[in-house]
Nucleic acid binder design. Structure first.
Lengths: 192, 192
DNA sequence: TCCTCAATAGGACGAACGTCCGAATTAAAA
DNA sequence: TTTTAATTCGGACGTTCGTCCTATTGAGGA
């Protein structure tokens, strides 16, 4: 009835295996059988815990989103002024792209699915919204008076800044010759 | 033997139907039967002309890429100086996002597939490369002396500029409340 | 007119998948 | 110890899909 340690570890093993497999092979190429096998669990357990494939993905993505937001906020907190926080924000993406590209791959894969599914779409908009609000609060509120961008909505600027990270990162993932591209992102800091 | 008008129209009908269906429903949700049906063609014709589903997608994407590059270059040609060309470049994305969002959806869908497939990956890197070279040639060559970005590779800047469009656009597609976000992109013009 | 080959058509095939069900097992509650 | 419910397990089901095969049609060249 209550979730003992084995149960928790069982469900979490499935989630971790799903995360690993999907972020390595893509959701479309990930079968429940393969995920179950990697988790050391029988196929029907996936339906028992998550009802169906969509339900499993929703939980996997939610974990990614929560982790993502937490890490970003932690970085934003550091830095004593807006410019330093922008710098930290950009550094976070540079480092993640380098050390944990699986996170980005999962995000891109999920983004394309979000275009065709209401459920996934709302989940991803929610991430984008929270992310932009974070950036807005920690960086762009009342700090744009002396900037080129003073006439723009601070939330719009936050979204565009994140969009720049997002759109640049996929070019790096797709082309190994562009490994040095993330460094150039630092040039953006000087704009604020 | 030779391609008469009926043949051309047959193959092109398939391509157009595939483009429409994939950009509306997504590649993963598009079955060859449905595409054939929409094209007014029998299923086996798709294998006859394109060998398999991957072959069909490759041709559809190549058409999109060629059209894309042509339109971008046409826009870049207009404008008498670098700043005007940046402005035109951004305007192109604003208009396309508004008038032809199917193009963006197809691009995002294809991007996620490119992450898991070598063939698609090379096709998309090629688009990104040509796009960045276009922007570089028309805008950033020898025009960065007076800019904040003078120490950066002009190709890197071109890629980041496009990345900004790319990453901003998906936020608009996913959230209908962000319809006014593209306007804010114009603020970027002032940075160069 | 006959021949040749590209084009069209319909259907069958097997594989892979998500889902579902009923039985067996476990462990906590009574 | 008995009971109850949650968990684990193995397997089957039906569907959908991409692919392939063969026959038929139609038009241009010899």
């Amino acid at each position: 009835m209550n979730q003992n340690f084995d149960t928790i570890s069982q469900k979490e093993r499935i989630l971790m295996a799903a995360y690993d497999y999907i972020s390595c092979e893509g959701y479309a190429n990930a079968s429940l059988r393969e995920i179950a096998s990697n988790a050391g669990v029988v196929l029907s357990q996936l339906n028992y815990y998550f009802k169906n494939k969509e339900g499993l993905l929703i939980e996997v993505i939610q974990i990614m989103i929560d982790k993502y937001l937490l890490e970003v906020e932690e970085r934003l907190k550091q830095g004593i002024n807006a410019r330093e926080r922008v710098s930290n924000f950009i550094k976070y993406f540079q480092e993640t792209l380098n050390e944990n590209p699986k996170l980005f791959r999962l995000l891109y894969d999920f983004s394309s699915m979000a275009l065709w599914s209401d459920v996934f779409g709302k989940q991803l908009s929610n991430l984008f919204e929270k992310l932009s609000i974070l950036v807005e609060e920690y960086i762009f509120i009342d700090t744009l008076e002396n900037s080129f961008l003073k006439n723009q909505s601070s939330n719009a600027i936050a979204r565009i800044l994140f969009g720049t990270m997002f759109g640049t990162a996929i070019q790096v993932l797709l082309d190994s010759k562009e490994k040095r591209l993330p460094e150039s992102l630092s040039a953006i800091e000087t704009l604020f």
